[in-house]
C-alpha cells in the first residue's frame, strides 16, 4: 500500500485554482520529489497533505489516514520542514526540540534520548545550548530536519529545504536527507525548484499551473527528452559528419564549429566514435539531459524563469480570499 495517496485533489481560492485535480502515489521508504516553478501549487499541496488547509474537492491519504477527516492522526504520522524557518529563535536548539517532543506527545522517558540522537544526526550536538538566533541559515534548516524526526514520523515533508542556503550547507543538508529513508525508516516528500537536486529522488512529479504534467523516475523522465547529446570538435567537420552518418545513421548538426549529435546511450557511443574518426577528433563532450530539459520540453519555459511579481500576485490573491471568507 502506498504511504501517500492523492486522488483528484483540487484547491481553489475563488476564481484562482492553485491545485487542479492532481493524483499521485508515493511508496513507503522512497524519496519523492514534487517539482515545479514557484506558484505552481507545490506548497498548497503540501499544506493540504499536512492538514493545514482544507481541500476544495478530492481525496488525500497518508499512512492510511484521511488528510481531510482525520487531521490529528495524519499530523502524528508526519513531520514538516516548512519553507520558512519555524523555530523559536529565543530558545536554544535543545529547547526547540524538547518543545516539539512534548507537543507531539513523545513519552517523557524517551525525550532526552531522541533529542540527543536527532542533534547528533544533523551534527549540531555541540551547539545544542546556543540560542537559535545565533545559528546560520544552514544550521537552522538542519535543526528543523532534526525536529521533524523527533516524533518518528512515517513521512517527512520538506518544502524547498535548500532555498537560500550556500552550496556547502546545501551539500551538507543533502547528505542528511538522502540518509534518512534507511536510517530513520521514513518516506521523504520534498518540493524544490532546483532541478539538479531532484536527481536524488526515486520518483518525481512535475507540477505546473496546478496540474501534474509528468511523473516517473529521474531516468525515465530524462529519456523523454531524447537522450544524450555528444558534442565534438574535429579537424574536418564535413568528413566527420559523413563518417558519423555511415556509422550510426544519425545526422549531426554543426554549430559554432562543433558537431552535435543526439543519441540514446552517449557513453557507449563515444569509444566507437573515436575508433571510427581516429585522430580527427580534437575533443569530445557528453551532455546528459537534466530534469530542467524535461521541464523545458514540457512547458516551453525554464523552471527557474520565475515571474516574481506573478508569484506575489498569487499570494496576495490567496490572502484577499482568506480575508473575505
Amino acid at each position: 500500500m502506498p504511504i501517500i495517496r492523492v486522488e483528484n485533489l483540487v484547491k481553489s481560492y475563488g476564481s484562482l485554482t492553485a491545485v487542479d485535480g492532481i493524483s499521485f502515489e508515493v511508496e513507503e521508504g522512497t524519496i519523492f520529489g514534487f517539482l515545479g516553478p514557484n506558484g505552481a501549487g507545490k506548497t498548497t499541496t503540501i499544506n493540504v497533505l499536512c492538514t493545514l488547509i482544507s481541500a476544495t474537492s478530492g481525496k488525500a491519504f497518508i499512512n492510511g489516514y484521511d488528510c481531510l477527516k482525520e487531521p490529528s492522526r495524519v499530523r502524528k504520522s508526519i513531520g514538516i520542514v516548512f519553507q520558512d524557518t519555524t523555530l523559536d529563535k529565543d530558545l536554544t536548539a535543545y529547547e526547540n526540540l524538547v518543545f516539539h517532543a512534548y507537543l507531539y506527545g513523545v513519552k517523557k522517558s524517551e525525550i532526552k534520548g531522541r533529542v540527543h540522537d536527532a542533534l547528533n544526526f544533523v551534527q549540531l550536538y555541540e551547539r545544542k545550548d546556543d540560542l537559535v538566533k545565533k545559528y546560520s541559515g544552514g544550521m537552522k534548516r538542519r535543526l528543523e530536519v532534526a525536529r521533524g524526526l523527533i516524533h518518528q514520523p512515517r513521512v517527512l515533508f520538506l518544502d524547498e529545504p535548500t532555498l537560500g542556503l550556500d552550496p556547502q550547507s546545501r551539500a551538507n543538508l543533502w547528505g542528511v536527507i538522502t540518509e534518512m529513508p534507511k536510517k530513520h525508516n521514513v518516506t521523504i516528500f520534498m518540493t524544490t525548484h532546483y532541478m539538479e537536486e531532484a536527481e536524488v529522488c526515486d520518483k518525481i512529479a512535475i507540477i505546473d499551473n496546478g496540474k501534474i504534467i509528468a511523473e516517473g523516475s529521474p531516468e525515465e523522465l530524462k529519456k523523454t527528452v531524447g537522450g544524450d547529446v555528444i558534442s565534438l570538435r574535429t579537424r574536418d567537420n564535413e568528413w566527420s559528419a559523413g563518417e558519423i552518418r555511415k556509422m550510426f545513421g544519425i545526422d549531426s548538426v554543426e554549430k559554432d564549429g562543433e558537431l552535435y549529435l543526439t543519441t540514446g546511450r552517449g557513453d557507449s557511443c563515444i569509444p566507437e566514435l573515436i575508433r571510427g574518426l581516429g585522430d580527427n577528433v580534437l575533443s569530445v563532450k557528453l551532455q546528459r539531459p537534466t530534469i530542467n530539459d524535461v521541464f523545458l520540453k514540457l512547458t516551453g519555459k525554464a523552471i527557474r524563469d520565475e515571474d516574481v511579481s506573478g508569484m506575489s500576485n498569487i499570494k496576495e490573491e490567496v490572502r484577499a480570499y482568506r480575508r473575505r471568507h
Partner: peptide
C-alpha cells in the same frame, strides 16, 4: 513562522 509549528501539531 513559529506559530505554524504549533498549529501543525496533533
Amino acid at each position: 513562522g513559529f506559530f505554524r509549528e504549533i498549529l501543525a501539531a496533533p
